[in-house]
Design a binder for these strands. Sequence first.
RNA 1: GGUCCGGUCGUCUAGCGGUUAGGAUGCCGCCCUUUCACGGCGGAGGUCGCGGGUUCGAAUCCCGUCCGGACUACCA
Length: 511
Amino acid sequence: MSVRVRYAPSPTGSPHVGNIRDALFKYLFAKHHNGVNIVRIEDTDRTRYVPGSEQDIFNSLRWLGIEWQEGMEVGGPFGPYRQSERKELGIYDKWVQVLLDSGHAYWAFDTPEELTEMREYQQVNKQPIGYFGGVWREASGESVQKARDAGVPGVIRLKIPKNKEIVIEDVIRGRITWDSNHVDDPVLIKADGMPTYHFASMVDDHLMEISHIIRGEEWISSAPKHACLFDAFGWERPIFVHCPIIKGKDGSKLSKRHGDTKCLDFRSAGFLPEAMVNFISLIGWAPGGDRELMSMDELIEAFDLDGLQPSPGVFDMEKLTWMNGHYIRQKSISNLMHDIKEFIFLKDTIEYWDRQDNGDVKVNELKMLENSIESQSEYMEKAVELEQERVQTLADFGNACEFFMVEKPNMDEKAVSKWLSKEHVPNLLNALLDYLQEKETISQEECENWIRTYAKDNNLEKLGPVVHPIRITMTGKTAGPGLFELMSVLGPVRMIERIRTVLKNHVVVTH
RNA sequence: GGUCCGGUCGUCUAGCGGUUAGGAUGCCGCCCUUUCACGGCGGAGGUCGCGGGUUCGAAUCCCGUCCGGACUACCA
């Protein structure tokens, strides 16, 4: 059997990581089996349509490297791939008529008020909630015709068979059964003539020859409706695969209140697509054994439905962050520079940080980074290289590289009072100043030699008393790249300036 | 309330009748070392939700129970 799967988002906003994780699984599955991945837009609810979200959907997919061979933007033999357009073509009207004619569907003219009242009644009487036929399921043809002639707004519902056991075979969970008397009659066509998800999606899945419906666990409860729909048409049911949902730290389904959940927010926050792909692929799926760090190609190679987990997984930011650091460290410096530039250049990035608490600090750092890379790319490349292994996200480079970019680094007060007040510091800094005076460039080795020699000549047993004051003078901080490397990158001119500043502002000369 | 799904270190997970229950992350310690990080090594952390069975033997099979979650729209 050829594998055909579909990612069918509705354009109601920028897609979430949970949603995108499902899209990833579909892609991996299709690729693994040389199948086809389809992107179809489910925009049957006009009231929830959010302009721009289609682009967000494509951008999310493309950012992660999830490809589709058929569907939106690429076309294919089963188009159009946007449901509102399919509706215009009369596709759904045609198929609902088939159901009406065969007695599998019926018109219902309940008012919203009546439906609300019904639910309230069911609620207080502890009954299953839903529409189980009302007065319309078995209504006579005449009364239906009368209502239609009178222009009463009505919907078309599917007749779920009574007193039956509905069984679906889910790949992950096996056999799931329902008493059909607990499954209510879903609306197929709304009063405005638009199909509902239940109808449009299943009709399209059949028409587009979808082999596997891979989707989130939240769809399990509507699966019997979908199965009945296929049965009503006499169509062969696709294989159902319900992936576990992704939870937030509190154990409930991941949503806005858990912080960043939009896929593209992670790009803006400085995460790499390879880390994102690797990380989300491992929520709800595992390749078996101890494998963990995997590229897209390796994931495709390893992916199979057996590795899918039935239980939900928590989205662990700490692990994502670690993994992102890993992928940053793995990058060649030229790729890294490219990624950083692209990251800052994206307007989403700045907008994202503007939205965060104290985000203005980050925005300033990033803009400075952008300017510095622009104006002195070779210098900044060396700076980035030194920070590469101590950073976890692309956004961290702003702060990490700050001291390379500014004329006067921010001085950490604690560090200053601990180290720069020491008695030997003026002598040390003046000596270094003299040494640097004539130079235009300086190598790591020269820095190291000078420092080691100075320590020896001044009977200092350890390098610390020499290294720390110099580090603070150069960077304002106690933590950072190796001193010799950093000095070499900074170069004599910048160092001289910084030494003078420190001598003037921070060193108390005691004689 | 109803229906359905789930339950292995805090978290992601390996395991698929016989293992000292393995890995990763996070945490702690040691090593490396001029700091921070990276890296290496080690440690703490799981009575496999609980209770019954089946079996010589159960995290693995069965039942019950508890807890958690999803759905419960003319939304998807």
